[in-house]
């Protein structure tokens, strides 16, 4: 590696830059947890360190009183599961068809999948709201939440990329033996791209789980709101009336962030940086 040629000074500088970066990225998360455990908000510098005299779980109880955390997590889970099912079923089918089958319209379909990624969602919120919430009457409905995210196009492109790498001879041989395309997809293609599936599940998961604008627009019923929406409503409306508004808000934030962070850390060794690059570039 060209590493050897770097001077000691350059290497130190690099280490400092990387360490500063890590602190800047991680500190707010550490602070989120610390803040969520403080009995009284302590914004001083000393407050950034755990203080046994000021630690409590009370904030979690308080936020749970105002917004039902379990219901919020459940709603986020249903919203996310719907998108995952749509993407894993229909996304895999398209990805396979784009990579391994020859059919009329394949080029157009691939071009559409690329184009969809640059369509700005802001232009769509008004017509989608009119169509889904008004015309189809799907406001305050899980289906209405899921619909605009049902099949993740980035996932489609990643699936295609991975299926393209599989040798076509493998499939041709099985076809001669009379296997159906669905069987080829299920028995040969999917088992061979398993690491890609994990990447796609993670990528797809964070979309609906973190989404705020759309579910915020279509759910007025609090019992149906995903956690991101109910926490946001808490921040913008009720936080001021709580005894420790920061503590309670941060406790909610920890609950919202934890599943994604844990999932990512557990599966990060399967997570391949290039996937995202190729997903966006196509």
């Amino acid at each position: 590696m060209h590493d050897v040629r770097m001077s000691r000074g350059a290497r130190t500088l690099r280490a400092v830059v990387l360490a500063l970066g890590a602190v800047a990225f991680l500190f707010p998360f550490y602070y989120m947890v610390i803040g969520s455990l403080q009995a009284k908000p302590d914004p001083t510098i000393a407050g950034a360190f755990p203080n046994p005299a000021n630690i409590t779980g009370e904030n979690y109880a308080q936020i749970n009183d105002r917004i039902n955390l379990f219901q919020g997590l459940l709603n986020s889970g249903i919203f996310t599961a719907g998108v995952l099912i749509g993407t894993m079923v229909f996304g895999l089918l398209v990805g396979y068809a784009l990579a391994q089958l020859q059919w009329r319209g394949r080029g157009v379909t691939f071009a559409l999948a690329l184009l969809v990624q640059v369509v700005p969602f802001q232009l769509l919120i008004i017509p989608l709201y009119v169509l889904i919430a008004r015309d189809y009457g799907l406001a305050d409905n899980y289906l209405g939440m899921i619909l605009p995210f049902f099949i993740n196009s980035t996932a489609v492109i990643i699936f295609r990329q991975y299926f393209l790498q599989l040798p076509r001879e493998l499939f041709d041989a099985a076809r001669i033996d009379g296997a159906s395309e669905l069987k080829l997809l299920w028995r040969i293609a999917i088992p061979l791209v398993r690491p890609a599936l994990i990447t796609v599940v993670l990528l797809t998961f964070i979309g609906p789980w973190n989404e705020f604008l759309w579910p915020f627009l279509v759910t007025k019923e609090t019992s149906l709101q995903p956690l991101a929406v109910s926490l946001a409503n808490y921040i913008s409306n009720v936080a001021s009336s709580a005894s420790n508004p920061f503590g309670a808000t941060l406790a909610g934030a920890v609950v919202l962030a934890a599943p994604v962070v844990v999932l990512f850390i557990v599966f990060q060794r399967y997570f391949i940086s290039t996937d995202i690059g190729s997903g966006v570039k196509g």
Partner: peptide
């Protein structure tokens, strides 16, 4: 790599809460 990527993975709504705490009038 994981630490740099974590803010991107986390919901805006969640990290906004910390920034409100960090950047408020007498915040850290």
């Amino acid at each position: 790599r994981v630490s740099y990527y974590i803010p991107y993975l986390t919901a805006s709504v969640a990290v906004v809460a910390v920034w409100l705490f960090l950047f408020n009038g007498n915040g850290l």
